[in-house]
């Protein structure tokens, strides 16, 4: 009886481990392939038998993208656009989520639904009208137009996540601050925001990644290396006669690294942020 139980537990644990390894391989393999491609010579990329380990490894593609293709300019553009988007989203989103979660407000869930519905528009449907508006306002090929659009796209997510986060803070904290003489703005800035830092890190990162990866609006509203962001830049690598897989892979690895580093730095906060309120503390 005991033997069969421990055998079953061992089998179960093995199956679980195998499944976990498979999932990790499934998720990481494309990225590893990308890294491998970034360091392979062009002739090996089209060889009959591809190899995971580059031999001989080469830094040609990295030199290419930063030298010939001035990839650093795209990175600067993306950093400005995504960074501003994240900061503005957090500032506006925090105020909105605070009002919805903590102040006496009628029909808060109606308002939240309307906010959510904004993110449900198919993006392709709003490109043309936004293009006309941006052209009329003289905002074509500026950071501003991208930031405005990304903030609008990112806000529903930011507001909903922060709303959920703020709701986990006991209401008595607000009341204590009110008794201490804090008005709504002071309450938000001095009490709610510091208490919600993990939530801010999580949502800020989500907004940043959304803006960092966005392609369609960036392609439609910018032209030229001075304003184009990374996804558009990588797409521009391809010309009529040739797809430079090595350069594309190298660029992809370079732009993924900041995200990986950010996530690793804030890992503790992110996990705390995503699980906050799941259990009673």
């Amino acid at each position: 009886m005991m033997a069969s139980l421990s055998l079953r537990m061992a089998v179960g644990r093995t199956l679980l481990t195998v499944a976990a390894v498979l999932i990790v391989v499934w998720s990481v393999a494309p990225f590893l392939w990308q890294v491998s491609t970034a360091f392979q010579e062009d002739r090996l990329l089209t060889a009959a038998t591809p190899s995971l380990l580059p031999s001989p490894p080469t830094l040609d593609h990295l030199a290419n993208i930063f030298g010939e293709k001035q990839f650093q300019l795209y990175i600067v553009n993306s950093t400005i656009v995504a960074g501003s988007t994240a900061l503005i989203c957090l500032a506006i989103g925090a105020a909105a989520a605070f009002a919805l979660a903590r102040l006496r407000m009628r029909n808060r869930f109606g308002i939240l639904s309307v906010i959510l519905s904004v993110s449900m528009f198919p993006q392709i449907a709003i490109v043309a009208p936004l293009y006309l508006i941006a052209a009329a306002a003289g905002l074509m090929n500026t950071y501003t137009v991208l930031i405005i659009i990304y903030v609008a796209l990112g806000l529903p997510l930011v507001i909903w996540v922060l709303f959920g986060y703020f709701q986990t803070i006991p209401l008595e904290i607000d009341e204590a601050a009110t008794m201490d003489g804090a008005g709504p703005l002071r309450l938000l800035v001095s009490v709610i925001v510091p208490m919600s830092l993990p939530g801010f890190v999580t949502t800020g990162l989500l907004a940043f990644i959304m803006a960092w990866n966005e392609f369609m609006f960036a392609l439609s509203f910018t032209s030229g290396i001075k304003r184009q962001t990374i996804p558009v830049g990588i797409a521009n690598f391809t010309n009529l006669y040739y797809v430079p897989w090595g350069d594309i892979a190298a660029a992809s690895v370079v732009v993924t690294l900041p995200l990986v580093v950010l996530v690793l730095i804030f890992q503790r906060y992110i996990i705390e942020g995503l699980t906050q309120g799941a259990v009673k503390e």
Binding site: P170, E172, I173, E175, A176, A177, T178, M179, D180, G181, A182, V191, P194, M195
Partner: peptide, 18 residues
Amino acid sequence: PKYRDIAMVFQSYALYPH
């Protein structure tokens, strides 16, 4: 409340954790 010159102690203490 802030102009009523009163102070309140809450059941859950409601301290600012940060």
